[in-house]
């Protein structure tokens, strides 16, 4: 006697249910346990929610929850080959780029890398103090022999953040120009932003081989691209309507308007998006070490796995230092843009 028998009896579906009965359907643990107590009246406060499993007890035709889980898995496995056939070649360049970047960052000797990083910081911020700060941080990491790991992490972040900007800005522009596009894109962005990072990894692991860099590359890009898209869209939509009207009144073409007015005026917002994108890449690169992303994340993982407290904490400190460096540099670049266009 199952709780929901009355439902199917009442609806006159008993025959339909029994016709589907196979008798020796695999039993779940809960079922077996419940068997022992069968016949006893369940007290009213234990009246079960009409879940798939509860309904299945009353009518074998209703699937069990684990069948649904199985179906999802089967479905994914069924389309996996097709997906892989399409996605694999498409994303192959990502592997190459990541491999190349890692190679360059690892191969370059520290006395070449330091001046290059200093030059980049100077170009972005024009601030001598920041150069000093960045050099001190990297030098400290090198001093405690974490330089190689830090460079691997940096290489991955550079590549992924660059690609995020490359794809994110055009998507953001497209969103800002069409309300329909915006309505369609926002749910996807919301999903990407709320899914826990680990969840991205699950389907990706099935699609690509774990040894390939593009696996973590895609995970990082999907996770980090959201802010730059959102802020590009927002930035362009926030451009002063009067200025747009002026641009129209001078007979600007859409193209002239986009590159001469909208993007320059949205630049502070776009840069804020880039800053967030970089920070999120950094967060994800640590998690991505679960799927063979090299860098400081590997050490953190070792710290957790082998309970090597010191290793975990020191590499964590390294990540914090990198985060501060990246944040300061991008923020300073943003401030420089802002200062030139106070309204």
């Amino acid at each position: 006697m199952a709780t929901y028998d009355f439902l199917f009896d009442g609806l006159g579906l008993r025959d339909w249910c029994d016709a589907g009965k196979t008798g020796d359907a695999p039993q779940s643990m809960a079922n077996l346990l419940a068997k022992g107590g069968a016949g006893k009246d369940t007290p009213w406060w234990e009246f079960p929610f009409p879940s798939l499993d509860a309904l299945n007890e009353a009518c074998a035709r209703i699937v069990q929850s684990r069948d649904m889980t199985k179906a999802v898995e089967d479905g994914f496995l069924a389309i996996k080959d097709v997906l892989r056939f399409v996605l694999d070649p498409m994303t192959q360049p990502l592997s190459w780029i990541l491999d190349f970047a890692l190679l360059v960052f690892e191969a370059a000797p520290w006395w070449v890398m330091f001046p290059i990083l200093m030059a980049v910081v100077y170009l972005a911020t024009k601030s001598v103090r920041l150069i000093g700060f960045v050099t001190a941080c990297i030098a400290f990491l090198a001093f405690i022999d974490h330089y190689g790991f830090a460079m691997q992490t940096l290489a991955i972040i550079f590549v992924c953040a660059f690609l995020c900007v490359l794809f994110g800005v055009p998507i953001g522009i497209a969103m800002s120009r069409s309300d329909r596009m915006q309505r369609m894109t926002i749910p996807v962005l919301d999903m990407l932003q709320t899914l826990p990072p680990f969840v991205y990894l699950i389907p990706l692991i099935f699609l690509f081989s774990v040894t390939e860099p593009k696996l973590y590359g895609i995970a990082i890009i999907l996770y980090a691209i959201v802010p730059v898209i959102r802020l590009t869209d927002l930035g362009i939509r926030l451009v002063d309507r009067d200025v747009i009207e002026a641009a129209d009144s001078f007979g600007m073409t859409d193209r002239q308007k986009l590159f001469g007015v909208q993007i320059p005026l949205a630049l502070p917002n776009i840069m804020a998006g880039v800053n967030q994108t970089i920070m999120m890449s950094l967060a994800m690169v640590v998690i991505a070490s679960l799927v063979s992303a090299p860098g400081l994340g590997v050490l953190v993982l070792r710290g957790i796995r082998n309970l090597e407290l010191g290793v975990g904490l020191i590499s964590g400190l390294g990540i914090v230092l990198l985060a501060i460096v990246l944040d300061r540099v991008t923020k300073a670049a943003l401030d420089r843009v802002n200062a030139a266009r106070k309204v």
Partner: peptide, 22 residues
């Protein structure tokens, strides 16, 4: 043709100036 009109025959001055800050 409209664009040519806006570019060559008319120019506008705005209450809020509408200059490009950059």
């Amino acid at each position: 043709r409209l664009r040519t009109l806006r570019r060559e025959s008319m120019s506008m001055v705005f209450q809020k100036f509408a200059l490009l800050p950059h």
